[in-house]
Nucleic acid binder design. Structure first.
Lengths: 111, 111
DNA sequence: ATCTTATATCGCAAATATACGATTAATAAA
DNA sequence: TTTATTAATCGTATATTTGCGATATAAGAT
């Protein structure tokens, strides 16, 4: 048992859930903050700022990358990560669309 | 090892991550859609609509409730869940604030 | 060529999440 | 009171996530 049934839901809901999942750990939110604050495309700085081991940070970066929220390029011996605003905007758009949709349909509190 | 270090991050980031986590499963997004579409405060309908067992749906409802996104009241032998718009708005506010904040700081794509 | 530095990946342990069936609890209906 | 209905909870199996140390990789420095 316990096969995950995510595929049984609509693609839209799966996408939104995936987006939310990428943001569902404070470390990943913190990483996005760091990336936005850096004026340059800085990489290993993140490890110094976060209270996590290098390998763990690398794992979180990988997840953000898989979700399409950041992009990474190799720059000599180091890697360079940046926020992928295009994908970010796209997902944020459908996210706030969902919310607006929910609100329009039912604003009242019934219980 | 492997103690989760979520507490090591700022309360704001923990809150946002918790909000995202509540939305990080398509079943929970679908539940919110159902709750918004129903004009009344309907409960067990959700189980019929979702491709999941009753106990599983109950578990997802509990999570949404723990996150404060929905409220539930007992109504005879059945339960009644509604979207908690107040909490929803509050969290959405800080969420879009984060995003706007990120964007203002760095809109360019550097890699 | 060797050493250093930066990062990714592997392997593992522990914690959480997902899902279900079975059971329980509580009310409504008979 | 007994029975049926609705939903929560328990127990359990499995899957996924989180985290770290160790190792591998790859490029720059010496």
């Amino acid at each position: 048992m316990a096969i995950h049934k995510k595929e049984a839901f609509s693609q839209k809901d799966q996408d939104l859930a995936g987006f939310a999942k990428a943001l569902s750990h404070p470390a990943r939110i913190a990483i996005l903050r760091v990336l936005a604050q850096q004026n340059e495309c800085i990489c290993g700085t993140i490890v110094d700022v976060l209270p996590l081991a290098q390998s763990t940070v690398s794992q979180h970066l990988k997840e953000l990358k898989n979700a399409g929220l950041i992009s990474g390029t190799v720059d000599g011996p180091r890697s360079c990560y940046c926020i992928n605003w295009k994908a970010f905007d796209k997902l944020m758009g459908s996210f706030s669309f969902l919310l607006q949709h929910l609100k329009i349909q039912n604003e009242k509190a019934c219980c």
